[in-house]
Design a protein around this nucleic acid. Sequence first.
DNA 1: CCGCTTAGTCGAAGCGCTTCGACAACGCCG
DNA 2: CGGCGTTGTCGAAGCGCTTCGACTAAGCGG
Lengths: 370, 370
Amino acid sequence: MATMQDVARRAQVSVSTVSYVLTGARPISQATRDKVLAAMAELDYQPNALARGLASRRSRILGLLLPMDERGIGATETAFVTGATSAAVAAGYHLVLSPIGVGDLDELRRLASQRILDGALLMEVQLHDPRVDVLREAGVPTVLIGRTEDPSGLSYVDIDFDRTVRAAVDHLVGLGHRRIVYVNHSADTIAEGYGPALRTRDSFTAAMTEHGLTPLMIPAEDSAASGRAALASALRQEPDLTAVLAMNESAVFGLLGELSTRGLTVPDDVSVVSMVTSPQVAELATPALTAMTSPGSALGRIAVQTLLRHVESGDGEIHQELLPCVLEVRGSSGPPRTPAASTTDPEAADERSSPGTEAARRRAATRRRA
Amino acid sequence: MATMQDVARRAQVSVSTVSYVLTGARPISQATRDKVLAAMAELDYQPNALARGLASRRSRILGLLLPMDERGIGATETAFVTGATSAAVAAGYHLVLSPIGVGDLDELRRLASQRILDGALLMEVQLHDPRVDVLREAGVPTVLIGRTEDPSGLSYVDIDFDRTVRAAVDHLVGLGHRRIVYVNHSADTIAEGYGPALRTRDSFTAAMTEHGLTPLMIPAEDSAASGRAALASALRQEPDLTAVLAMNESAVFGLLGELSTRGLTVPDDVSVVSMVTSPQVAELATPALTAMTSPGSALGRIAVQTLLRHVESGDGEIHQELLPCVLEVRGSSGPPRTPAASTTDPEAADERSSPGTEAARRRAATRRRA
DNA sequence: CCGCTTAGTCGAAGCGCTTCGACAACGCCG
DNA sequence: CGGCGTTGTCGAAGCGCTTCGACTAAGCGG
């Protein structure tokens, strides 16, 4: 493995000159630069990142702290990661993921205090996230993906849950739905301070109230079984419901199963809209789910650029940005059968639907199997 | 940030003594050790990983090279990652994930030649994986998760696809199925050299043949739509099929949707077994999928231990190990309705099933909605 | 033509740690 | 009791790089 010494010798210049060619910290004449670059190429020289980091006090490594629960990493997070990675690489940094959640504070402390990371991106941020304090104590510049309860003084990027929920509600209300139930994460998750669950709950309540409708929220664990239970509970509390808005990807599938078990069709009897769901997952369902798609890749890019600004300018000004999810209408949402009669004959319901719509087409397809 | 100098001064010993306390490279008396440890605690000393790495030529960082396609990381991979992480941390190493696929060879080369990693774990290994060569050239010890076509001279851990497929086939044959179709990944994926797709294909053919049955394999893209198409194609080629074995998680859901659309029930009309599928995903389906659960966490642990043996012993002997997935019977598999008549009256089919089995119970539950 | 800035290069001093050789002090053996 | 292997500690020499001060050679306005 060639060192800078070798390059310098071969190019007949001093080590510092080679360094300046690499870093651009001082001007180097074109002739010298060419000699040095040629020597590097011939020796297949690669700078030793550790030595460089030690001398410059900058590792050029960014950490993405990404809790991994047993469910894995969804397409949304993946988009975020790829967006962040390409932004980091473009800036000459490495982006490494570390599966560190709020439970692994010791490992985080090690990572942060050992000066391995120039900066950190925090995913799955909780309202009171101890990781933020650990990083601050260690003096590691940080950008949050999500928000703590009081994010003042912290840079973050996050989904604009308020606009997202409102867009979803508007979509359903626009289709004619009045009885809409919101399936959220579990009560425990909410109590534990999971921001998205809280924020969407509040926005849902506000949006429904503004439309003059009564908000009904049902919590559900992140499991299919719990989704089934949630639907049962929803139908008990609101037998006339015509639409479900869900924040809980795992529960949605159970919910769809339960609808089918009860002989209710989607979207004829009940429309289903899933929040913050990737196209790939939405397409798994039959019919495919109308969903709010998250701007994952853009969030990742913005987060890295913000972080680098902090890293390179020794803590620049804070930057806070919210991006909404965009509505993608698929087969699971359509006009309600009739405002009050959810048990009407299917043929009758068909009469009042515009025959050319996607929803109508799907409904017809679904009926074929009856 | 305190340095080793500070600790040495405070403990009234030399820097090297402090170092020996930390590394244990030479014996230190208990009294001295205590003084040093006390000083470290008082100063909240954390060694600088970069300096340590530079001096010792060992970064104590292991890389997990994990391609991220748009679908994200499944529960299987997650289990692997957590298993690997805890093994690494237990050994005093950091384990960082890097989303590097076969397309990011340049980034991999940077990472490998810059001496940041002591070793690498390679996931989603292809039969001819260029990453292996890059790592070998850079002299980075590597353990594969999966296998290249000719893995001689390389350490790896992998799923024992042969035993896994045979277990799945045995399960179905044991239930009485004779017409079993295998839904694999796409022809492109196979052509591209995706090991699991090839190996399971071959094992399926062998297992079926040994049972005196005719193997039928249908390729499918990793999407629900393609799963639907695959089922349609399967029914065209083998109208009497009673069971589907699937290697393709995304396609399974489309396949289930298509079964339902055609009025075929699971497992009454068709049994479905999914390969290398996590319990979490299996539970998303209705009924929950009988599946082969991968030994993810154990694979991760073994991989790291193998890698560390290479790292610490300057390339020890190679280690190759295969672990099978274990069968978990859920609601999607049961005895076939009748060997030849797939359109028989459901009540008649019930006559010949053992009434106490889980499968029978589920079938009864399913029929309730008719 | 003089002093001044600017471009271009070099040497040396670290960055914070590991590791090697040296050495003192201590039993322990015959 | 003299030589010898252990044990415990120290000082110094790096690891491969960045960066600072210094120096030379132009370039330039007055």
